[in-house]
């Protein structure tokens, strides 16, 4: 036990540094992805083919190809087309685009699950489509968005481990790298798992709390 604590003291600081990178990558990509996703969802449900076609293509491509491929493409293939992005921006672009595609579907499903009568009532009062979306439809989606969005965030957190293929040192890479140096395999992996769990459990807890708050309103 004393040995385990000793090892923990050497392991944790290293892993925490990795966790910091993982979190930064996750949060920035999640934010951008959410904005992208909302825009893409609204474009998908519009009646204007100039909006629906590109949005559908975007969602289809980024949900239909492996995230690793998207990462490597942006980091290693774009330079051949003239765009050389450093590692962190490449990762943010890839993760944001990928998350955005999944989030677009989450938003779309949530919006379309709101009763048609809501939009009809809002429009019949003279509200424009945009106003109705903003004031009536979208606020009603928040509760329905929580579970799938939390899933997506947790998935994104874990997906960031792919970033080591484009030279980003995140939690998983710190972990395997450390192990190769110290051979403290199970100790390091246990703590790595704990750190990922801390993040995902924090997410689900936050979501439950938010859901309860929304319950009160109805």
């Amino acid at each position: 036990m004393a040995r385990f604590i000793e090892h923990t003291i050497t392991i944790l600081p290293v892993l925490l540094e990795g966790l910091g990178v993982t979190l930064r990558l996750t949060l920035i990509s999640a934010l951008i992805g959410t904005v992208l996703g909302l825009l893409a969802a609204l474009a998908r449900i519009s009646r204007n083919p100039l909006l629906t076609v590109p949005a559908s293509a975007y969602v289809t491509v980024f949900r239909g190809t492996p995230l690793l491929l998207q990462l490597l493409f942006i980091y290693n293939a774009l330079p051949q087309l003239g765009l050389l992005l450093p590692a962190f921006p490449s990762a943010v672009v890839a993760f944001s685009l990928n998350a955005g595609a999944y989030i677009a579907e989450i938003f779309r499903a949530a919006i379309q699950s709101i009763d048609r009568g809501q939009m009809e009532a809002a429009r019949s009062l003279g509200m424009s489509y945009g106003l109705a979306m903003r004031r009536v439809i979208l606020p009603q989606t928040y509760r329905r968005l929580l579970p799938p969005m939390v899933n997506e965030l947790a998935a994104l957190t874990k997906d960031t481990s792919l970033a080591s293929s484009i030279s980003i040192l995140e939690l998983m890479k710190y972990s395997t790298q450390f192990i190769s140096r110290t051979a403290l395999v199970w100790q390091t992996f246990v703590w790595t798992a704990v750190l990922y769990l801390v993040v995902t459990v924090a997410l689900t807890t936050l979501a439950s709390w938010l859901e309860k708050k929304m319950e009160a309103r109805g």
């Binding site: 980091y75 330079p79 030279s167 040192l169």
Partner: peptide
């Protein structure tokens, strides 16, 4: 030094990183 996974190491060289 740029630390990168073995799986991505060659592509990154060719890309110019």
């Amino acid at each position: 030094f740029t630390i990168i996974d073995w799986s991505g190491i060659q592509a990154s060289l060719l890309a110019g990183h």
